[in-house]
Design a protein around this nucleic acid. Sequence first.
DNA 1: CCGTATCAATACGCCAGCGTATGGAGGCTC
DNA 2: GAGCCTCCATACGCTGGCGTATTGATACGG
Lengths: 202, 202
Amino acid sequence: MFVTSKRPRLTAHDWAEAALEALGAAGLTAVAIEPLAVHLGTTKGSFYAHYANREALVSAALTLWEQRSTEAPIYALEAESDPVARLRTLLKQAGRRTGQDPSEINILASAGHELVAPVVRRVMQRRIQYLISLFEQIGFTRTESVHRATLAHTAYIGLIEMTTRLPGALPLENTRATDEYVKSVLALLLYGADRCDLQEEI
Amino acid sequence: MFVTSKRPRLTAHDWAEAALEALGAAGLTAVAIEPLAVHLGTTKGSFYAHYANREALVSAALTLWEQRSTEAPIYALEAESDPVARLRTLLKQAGRRTGQDPSEINILASAGHELVAPVVRRVMQRRIQYLISLFEQIGFTRTESVHRATLAHTAYIGLIEMTTRLPGALPLENTRATDEYVKSVLALLLYGADRCDLQEEI
DNA sequence: CCGTATCAATACGCCAGCGTATGGAGGCTC
DNA sequence: GAGCCTCCATACGCTGGCGTATTGATACGG
């Protein structure tokens, strides 16, 4: 042919990347070999040169996701010094991502699958642990920190769930309203942080 | 035959009920005619005497769900008089149902489907509106009420999402810990309710 | 420059589920 | 008790996806 278009040969990583994209965009059932092959401009025949079966592909995609979900947020907060500032930027980021990113929700929804559950569990637990540590650094007791971290995390999950599944259902019309909401939540989560009968480090 | 077992003939309602059960237990894909027929002890041939197709069945199941989701919670709170007590029992009920009831989450997760979205949206918006009215009755301003209602609702969604998808991932080991958590959340949601610079009705 | 390992293409069998067609069997009405 | 209406059963074709087999192309190293 003349227009061979020089398609570069695909690697296992290409497949994993496409699988992760599909998983984030449309859930576990979208990680289907034949549709992915079409998307990648090839046929499923070549897939089995890279992976044994669909499960292996899902595993690879999840590995990618776990890496990125662990590395990314750490770096982003290194800049901030005190725990309150870190919490604030964390919440602001969450508010900004609202409704933009269905991947979190689609992957969490896939946790019914044996392969997905442990990965999602690890990522979520790391986040919650980090939140707990933030509240403890702020000066709250252990149990109070656990409670506020749980509230923060579940509110985040519920927020992205609502905004991706039912866009516009929450009474947060625009970005302004969302920002105000985030501020409000931050205030509530920090309620009592300035009281002096908290356990201090000295 | 001798052991005809006298199976009663099925009605459209029986199918809708079974469909709703499957939807709540395992999501939209579980609302499949042939498996449901097996579950009901019949064959799919009889299904098409009641409904035109699968979509119609899904619609019927959702109608059932919407009715129950709207009637139930209203009655349950009529007993309580003041809004704070209503909020408290609401949260306690939520905490008690934790991890027991995957249906909310499975139905919400099905809102990607055109047929499901409007129903779920209506139910959710009614709840949020009710929460907002509670906070306004307590004495908060409109925007403050919107914020706290949104926080309460999203925290609830996130809580049941986490407990059904990833049981044990939240740092709420047992029922006691969950009760304590709910108390904490209630306290945070009501922070400032006793201040006198709130807008009062007199 | 040739051979081999890797990727690609096609065809095949398999399974699950939807929707249709066609008979059969039971109950209700008159 | 005859007839009809409703529900049940089975068979069929269709779609979409998985996994396998076989063959073809192509890049890369010796």
